[in-house]
Design a protein around this nucleic acid. Structure first.
Length: 569
RNA sequence: CGGGGUGUAGCUCAGUUUGGUAGAGCACUGCCUUCGGGAGGCAGGGGCCGCAGGUUCAAAUCCUGCCACCCCGACCA
């Protein structure tokens, strides 16, 4: 491709509303343009990258035996009413009406459509297992789209759905998909990690997320280097400490803490570290009353764990200050488990381990110190309620956990029978009996992979594409192309490179060298060849990788072989 | 949805306080000089100042309403 036929539309200035580096660079490089909140046009340069990712995904899905389909983006409400999600999904579902005032939605996902397809097409266990996938535009009406295509409303997703007679079949396909995803992300050239994950509102039992590792990632991962354990911090268990609880050493005492509300303030005031405090969080209980969740002062409540506790109402709802004052007669900052009337207590394992601890006195302006379980108040019911932290022991006993940031680019689920039951997806088994099938589903955020790749691979000059997804492999820059000998040599080399199957962007503009170098660096092409009058005299050209500081002189006659030995696709 | 902010050239922004001929840099077009890391000069093109009302001799500027976008929070198969 010639730059004179491929408008680059790069900019030097960073658009004001782009916050993260991938968004900034995608705009500056001329990959995408915003049309409206969360809606982006992919320009030719950006689309090339998107299609590189798509190609890898498609090849690996095909290799794994999945079958590509293409389902409608717009879906009739009836299917969603059948699964129950028309009511449950909420405002993130874009609902639309046609001219007959029939209800439709723009698909945020396709479980309903695929399950409907399956029940119409597949009759017999002998046709199982089957795995259908598509690469489709989805729409989710996010309350706050941001970060460019990282969290857009409309985005490109690969979604796959598998159907099985039994759990063993599902399990096998699930493992096959995990391996396929691993191969896909290895092929993109990104550093990633597969982590245990929550199944969320989609239901199901087992799931893994594929995370591209990047400091700007919105998700936190708990990982143990020694054992290879990795999980979303939402999910990573914090088991009870192994050491026994220390014996009480202090007497219970009430102390004045006027105006002190937060743990930090009280800790500072009393000179007792936050780790020896127990904080009391009141949430709505499953039966309607209030439930007190007790955590060590330096620990953080894990909302997901809390709302899974049978005594706690889901979704987790913190009791408001007014309600607490009305029912318990003290402000939130003075709550404590001692003598708390009519409220069930659930203590995190670490909080239950505390001795001689500090807590609120249930009286404004006072705290208790030297508090001990079993002596000053009954032994509590315990549960895992906190979010793990760096340094916590790995749940598999493998050593300390580290916390890393990641961008979720893929998610695999064992869905089970949620949709097949609701929608009557059955096959006849060997005995001629009708059996409800069990399902898996497997997603990859294709457009998000592009943004994640940039988050992970950039420098002050621009993007540094991993070669497998780069828009071009080789940048060919002619310096002084207005000189006939340069133009001639450049044209000849361009033709030769194209003929050898390399994907080349030939900068044949009559621009200053600095402009061309800056553009090629910004758009991140992995290999660069420069043809100049100077080099031509030596019968050489210059070669440089995007990440190199210095160029190498290579004999003109050897450059194609040289490149062939250094490119990877 | 709550709180805060911004809408002026393709982009980044001045100008609004105190009403009086709509600006700069980048980008774009032409010419000249320059030519190995985003050059310089000269000359140009490009604006319903978000939209609709209102006040005024006169509105980018003041008033009212609406719309769009951004940030923080809540939310988030």
């Amino acid at each position: 491709m010639r730059v004179t036929r491929f408008p680059l539309s790069t900019t030097r200035e960073t658009p004001a509303d782009a916050e993260i580096v991938s968004h900034q660079l995608m705009l500056r490089a001329g990959m995408i343009r915003r049309l409206s909140a969360g809606l982006y046009t992919w320009l030719p340069l950006g689309l090339r990258v998107l299609q590189r990712v798509e190609r890898i995904v498609r090849e690996e899905m095909d290799r794994a035996g999945a079958l590509e389909v293409l389902m409608p983006a717009v879906q009739p409400a009836e299917l969603w009413q059948e699964s129950g999600r028309w009511e449950k999904y909420g405002p993130e579902l874009l609902r639309i009406q046609d001219r007959h005032e029939r209800d439709f939605c723009f698909g945020p996902t396709h479980e309903e459509v695929i399950t409907d397809l399956f029940r119409r097409e597949i009759r017999s266990y002998r046709q199982l297992p089957v795995n259908y996938y598509q690469i489709q535009t989805k729409f989710r009406d996010e309350t706050r789209p941001r970060f460019g295509v990282m969290r857009a409303r409309e985005f490109l997703m690969k979604d796959a759905y598998s159907f099985h007679l039994d759990d063993a079949g599902l399990e096998a396909e699930y493992q096959a998909m995990r391996e396929t995803y691993t191969r896909i992300f290895e092929r993109t050239g990104l550093a990633f990690s597969a982590v245990e994950a929550d199944t969320g509102a989609i239901g199901g039992s087992v799931s893994h997320e594929f995370m591209v590792l990047a400091d700007s990632g919105e998700d936190a991962i708990a990982a143990c280097e020694a054992s290879g354990y990795a999980a979303n911090v939402e999910l990573a268990p914090a088991p009870p400490p192994e050491q026994p609880r220390p014996a009480p050493g202090e007497a219970l005492q009430e102390v004045a803490t006027p105006g002190q509300r937060t743990i930090a303030e009280v800790a500072d005031h009393l000179g007792i570290p936050a780790s020896r405090h127990v904080k009391t969080l009141l949430v709505e209980g499953a039966e309607g009353g209030l439930v007190a969740l007790l955590l060590r002062g330096d620990h953080e409540l894990n909302e997901l764990k809390a709302e899974k506790h049978p005594a706690v109402a889901a979704p987790l709802t913190l009791a408001g200050a007014e309600r607490v004052e009305a029912e318990l007669g003290c402000p939130l900052g003075s709550l404590g488990p001692v003598g708390l009337q009519g409220v069930a207590l659930i203590a995190d394992h670490a909080a239950a381990q505390a001795a001689d601890f500090v807590c609120g006195a249930n009286r404004e302006g006072y705290h208790l110190i030297g508090v001990n379980w079993g002596r000053d108040l009954p032994e509590p019911e315990t549960a895992d309620l906190r979010t793990v932290e760096a340094g916590d022991p790995s749940p598999d006993g493998g050593g300390p956990l580290a916390i890393r940031r990641g961008i979720e680019v893929g998610h695999v689920f064992q869905l089970g029978k949620t949709y097949s039951e609701a929608m009557g997806a059955t096959v006849l088994d060997e005995a001629g009996q009708e059996r409800t099938v069990t399902m898996g589903c497997y997603g990859i955020g294709v457009s998000r992979v592009v943004a994640a790749a940039i988050e992970q691979n950039h420098d002050e000059r621009g993007i540094r594409w991993p070669e497998p997804i780069a828009p071009f492999q080789v940048a060919l820059v002619a310096i002084k192309p207005e000189q006939p000998d340069v133009a001639e040599a450049a044209e000849a080399l361009y033709a030769e490179l194209m003929a050898s199957g390399l994907d080349v962007l030939y900068d044949d503009r009559e621009a200053r060298p600095g402009v061309k170098f800056a553009d090629m660096d910004l758009i991140g092409i992995p290999h660069r060849i420069v043809i100049s009058p100077r080099a031509l005299q030596q019968d050489t050209v210059e070669y440089k990788r995007r990440e190199d500081a210095e160029a190498t002189a290579v004999d003109r006659s050897e450059i194609v072989t040289w490149l062939k030995n250094r490119t990877t696709r």
